[in-house]
Design a protein around this nucleic acid. Sequence first.
DNA 1: ATGTGTGAATCGGTTCACAGCC
DNA 2: GGCTGTGAACCGATTCACACAT
Lengths: 217, 217
Amino acid sequence: MAGDLQKRRIPEATVARLPVYLRILLELAESKTATISSERLAELAGVNAAKVRKDLSYLGSYGTRGVGYDVEYLLFQMSRELGLNHDWPVVIAGIGNLGSALANYGGFTERGFPVAALVDADTTKVGRSLGDLEIRHVDELPQLVDELGIAIGVIATPAHVAQGVADKMAEAGIHSVLNFAPAVITVPDGVSLRKVDLAVELQILSFYQQHRHEQTV
Amino acid sequence: MAGDLQKRRIPEATVARLPVYLRILLELAESKTATISSERLAELAGVNAAKVRKDLSYLGSYGTRGVGYDVEYLLFQMSRELGLNHDWPVVIAGIGNLGSALANYGGFTERGFPVAALVDADTTKVGRSLGDLEIRHVDELPQLVDELGIAIGVIATPAHVAQGVADKMAEAGIHSVLNFAPAVITVPDGVSLRKVDLAVELQILSFYQQHRHEQTV
DNA sequence: ATGTGTGAATCGGTTCACAGCC
DNA sequence: GGCTGTGAACCGATTCACACAT
């Protein structure tokens, strides 16, 4: 077995589920569960067993027929694949309501995404502290990225400045952007972009609520 | 002939994009743009024109060949379809860091989702005020839903109590749930569920960052 | 006997390409 | 001539079903 090269391109849909499996495996490991079947893992992840098996098969043949998957080993392989063996420092841009909440939200650091810097364009905010971080001006992004090894930019600004901030992030060398602003933004090739739009989520729910009578299967 | 009945079942992927079109149409209307082509709308929404046309065609034939779509008319039809002609009051469960931020985040009310109630299981929090709302105990959900016509429940609790809260919401008659807790939860038939998992988003970005060398198209 | 790994069948969604209408 | 609306072709993802390993 001479190394795997990049034999497999993992489908996007699978990539989006891996973190869910990972979280469940962490819980299983904590409760000292040694092995798990695709059936049981599927149940915990809210999907079906065939999907779990296919998803995990993209990582390699890490299961044992007749037995299931070794929790610790699968955890190790999955963490590696997801790049979670080391931390990815994050910068949050836009320290308003949402930005502050995200900065204080322990869940990030806990999962390997330490909030390493906060930036804002509002000079009255710059210099203030939040937790143990001082808010810096958005134009300092390049230095911050450089000095702190920032890998991921989180945009929590008002919509009308989101694109500008994304541009600055990309220019500063950030290759991963998570956008919370309710605006469609674009990033250069080679930069990954994900978005979380709270109002959109509510409107989707509103649609299905509105159409509840039409049987939803 | 016999009318259209429920001629069209709108695909899920389309439903998820309608709110994005809607927001763009609102901006266009504000800037007094009268008509828009699928091409231009696609550009603003970050998708391609064929997709826009197909998506809009599920709403009905509201475009004019050779001209484009009337912004106001399309806006009206789309709002109607999304159920945004009236407000949908929201309850937020779990008034910690994230819950508080969501409660204060103006964006909800502004888009027709007024935060009508806040609940928590922590009796030391119950009775406190946040903005102009008093935090109520989670067991009061049924009354709150009844009195305030609450339609949507937002879960911002710690992961280990999220399922319990979801159960209580469903029992109280809530048919739409938005889950921010990092846990897989299930809801009864007839209840819609969407989730926003911040750590999962970061981990997905981490994956692609990790694999940046393998050309990403 | 049990449960994985994976080709094959299927499904949902996207994109193409063009007929139809303004 | 320009742009919509939509069948048809295509593509990615899901599900099925079973050979194979333990």
